[in-house]
Design a protein around this nucleic acid. Structure first.
Lengths: 187, 187
DNA sequence: TTGTTCATAGACAGATCTGTCTATGAACAA
DNA sequence: TTGTTCATAGACAGATCTGTCTATGAACAA
């Protein structure tokens, strides 16, 4: 058992478990039997709750998406400055990476293992990225015509910071990306 | 058969084949039987040449690394301006992405599927990234003390452009990253 | 022509993977 | 107490995966 699980409900225990196992080993590298053993859940409960491993993967991404949104909402509350609101995303990426031992972006990782356009995994990835961009666009709406271009640039920095963090197993790249975003938006 | 293979040698045919299949479907998603069928090679030849699937994966990364180095060397020949020499990397990323239908960075993808520090796949990834950084450092050596920091920033932009290209299945992000790198280095 | 080297086709073994099903028990409401 | 719901343990089926091995043939040098 990697860690103590908080929920008594099998579905939630499974989602907590794969949130640890998938980033650590890769999605396809982790079998059903390992998942249920670590979660302490019967195999029938997994198939009762999700129906298939692929559906479990999609649920895992949707749960991550929901968590990210809630965490962002909480973190951004009371932050009035538009630039700071954007930079919150970078700060949250640092915290999240440390929790998951620098395994990069959960969504891009899933897209790597389940490529192919139209795939439900790809759609979950797209939904998350669209939401992130929408938050930045919201924060930067005051820049008028310039704001869309700024969102594009912030995304380059954000994605680059996370990719570098993964490769280097260090928070330095995301910290640098944050600084570059700050400079970009302060000008 | 995805495409006509040029080499008659089994090892080379296998490497050409997985260079197409791995980015397209993911490494773990492609089985040995599919590889040898597409390559038109006997299974014994695969194990004779590489010994295991994992060794084939490492050889695939090393071949990609060698190809990238040769292509970069050729592309940079005669380019005198330091900034342009750095930007060549971005231009090559565009071309390479189009060939592989926007599947992102071969090395980061492999690191996603074979995580874990010390793993031979991870070492191949690290070697490639170090080489790329060394080329940029070389080009920017004239900036003196500033050059190391510039390399770090270029890497953020480069990684971000490639990640965005993969997610959006478009060259727009890498083109934007190139422009941001140009602005960074022109200041 | 003969012998050697290289590659092939594909059977086979053994492990592992996903998903189903059965029998059983725990929790709990009425 | 009784009946229902939910979950468990784990056998099982069938597919698939990696890796080995055997028998065979093609290419080619001497």
């Amino acid at each position: 058992m990697v860690t103590a699980l908080s929920s008594p409900r099998p579905a939630e225990r499974l989602l907590e478990t794969v949130s640890l196992l998938f980033p650590l080993h890769g999605i396809r590298a982790v079998g059903i039997d390992q998942i249920i053993a670590e979660a302490g859940v019967a195999k029938a409960s997994l198939y009762q709750a999700f129906g298939s491993k692929e559906a479990l993967v999609v649920a895992y991404l949707e749960r991550q998406d929901a968590t990210d949104r809630a965490v962002y909402r909480a973190a951004v509350t009371g932050v009035g400055d538009p630039v700071d609101r954007v930079l919150v995303s970078f700060d949250l990426a640092v915290a999240s990476a440390q929790r998951r031992s620098y395994r990069g972006c959960v969504f891009l990782n899933a897209a790597t293992e389940f490529p192919g356009p139209g795939h439900p995994v790809g759609e979950a990835v797209e939904a998350h990225r669209a939401w992130v961009r929408a938050r930045w666009a919201e924060a930067l709406a005051g820049r008028g015509a310039e704001s869309a271009a700024l969102v594009d640039r912030v995304q380059i920095l954000y994605d680059g910071g996370i990719a570098g963090m993964k490769a280097a197993r260090s928070t330095a790249p995301i910290a640098l990306a944050r600084e570059m975003a700050r400079e970009l938006l302060s000008s």
